[in-house]
Amino acid sequence: MSHLDDEKIALIAMGEPAGSDADMEHLVECENCAAEVAAMSRVALVARSSVVEGDLESPPADVWSRIHGELGLTSAVAADPASDVHPPESESESASAPAASAPVSAAGPATAIEADAAEAAAPRHRARVRPRRRSSATMWILAASMALVVAIGAGVWIARTLTPSSAVIASAELAAFPDHPDAEGQARIDDDGDGRRTLTVTLDGDELVAGDYREVWLIREDGQALISLGVLDESSGTFRVPDSVDLDEYRLVDISFEPVDGDPAHSGDSIVRGELDFA
């Protein structure tokens, strides 16, 4: 039984119209060829299902060389299958190629020796064709695997790109109060893209008195209401802004000294304060 060559099996596996009616009938009857088509179809399906929209980036030139070395492949498939460039046959391979059958001269038919040489050359030529076709199919499979790796990498990159990123939506310079002339601070409001807001403050130039702590506040513009966001233990800190807080009203950021006296109200000893700018 004559089996389908590997190029035709690969094309059929990719859904290309490469097979004739006779080839299709052969696939129904031949378990070996049908199994090869099924195996290559799975590779093609995985590669295609992993490709995202848009053009894929070509892998670096050394990717194929690493795959080649890792699998211990021969020099016949040393060329990158993702490119259209194939190395020429080496001199040794050219030298080993069988010579064409000698033509019949005008003087008469070829001698018996010449005929024997021609018959010996033909099988060697046929023996070289099959491995070369199989190498081509192997390169196709490896190229599909490389495309799958690149597609997965592209999918990861796109997923990261589409993830909402934090953005600064307001900032403020915090000016020192007269009792703390060397203090200075900054504040900013970040939005993570899903509506969650945080306030980050920095404070320099003040000295924490033993027994006191520093507290961060949002104060309404009219000064009649304020919200504590937490204690500032270091020179900087980040605090979650409650979803219910309207920053158009609570625009003042304040950092104060607070005594450890059990009173949750503002002590009146502000270190720095500033108004948020949403421009």
Rank of each mutant, 00 (worst) to 15 (best):
A210M: 13
D243Q: 13
H180D: 08
L203Y: 03
L218E: 08
D246F: 07
D182Q: 15
Y213T: 07
G230Y: 04
Y250V: 01
D191C: 00
D182T: 07
E221R: 12
S236V: 09
H180N: 09
L226V: 11
D191T: 01
L229F: 06
Q224W: 00
R251H: 13
D192C: 01
D243C: 02
D179G: 11
R188V: 03
G237V: 08
D194S: 07
P181Y: 02
D246T: 10
D182A: 15
R220Y: 00
D233L: 11
D182P: 05
T202D: 08
S228E: 10
T200S: 08
R220K: 14
F239G: 15
D248H: 13
R196H: 15
A210N: 14
D194K: 13
E234A: 14
E249H: 07
G223L: 04
G185L: 02
V201G: 05
A187F: 00
L199M: 12
R251V: 14
E221W: 00
G205P: 06
D182W: 07
S228A: 12
G211F: 10
H180C: 09
A187H: 00
Q186W: 03
L226R: 12
L229G: 03
I227A: 04
L208N: 11
V209E: 14
L208K: 15
V241F: 06
P178Y: 06
W217F: 02
A187S: 02
L208I: 11
G205A: 11
V209D: 15
A187Q: 00
D192S: 00
D212W: 12
R214H: 09
W217C: 04
P181I: 03
G195W: 09
R188M: 00
V245N: 04
G223P: 05
L229R: 02
L226H: 10
L208R: 12
Q186F: 02
P181E: 06
R196A: 10
I219W: 09
H180E: 08
V209T: 13
P181M: 10
G230I: 01
E184L: 05
S228N: 12
A210K: 13
F239R: 11
Q224G: 06
I227M: 08
R220C: 10
P242R: 14
L226A: 09
D248M: 15
R188W: 05
L229K: 03
S228H: 00
E234L: 14
V231L: 10
T198C: 09
G211Y: 04
D204A: 12
R220D: 14
G205K: 07
I219T: 04
I227S: 08
D194A: 14
D222L: 04
D194N: 02
G211R: 13
V231R: 11
D179N: 08
P178R: 01
E215T: 11
G237Y: 11
Y250C: 06
L232F: 05
I189E: 02
R240F: 13
Y250L: 13
D233V: 12
R240V: 15
E184G: 09
R251E: 11
A187I: 02
L229A: 08
G193V: 06
R196L: 15
E184Y: 09
D248P: 01
D206C: 05
T200K: 08
G237F: 15
Q186I: 01
D246E: 12
V209L: 15
G237E: 09
T238A: 14
R214G: 05
S228K: 05
F177I: 07
S236K: 10
V201R: 08
Y213G: 12
T200W: 05
E234C: 02
R188K: 06
T200D: 03
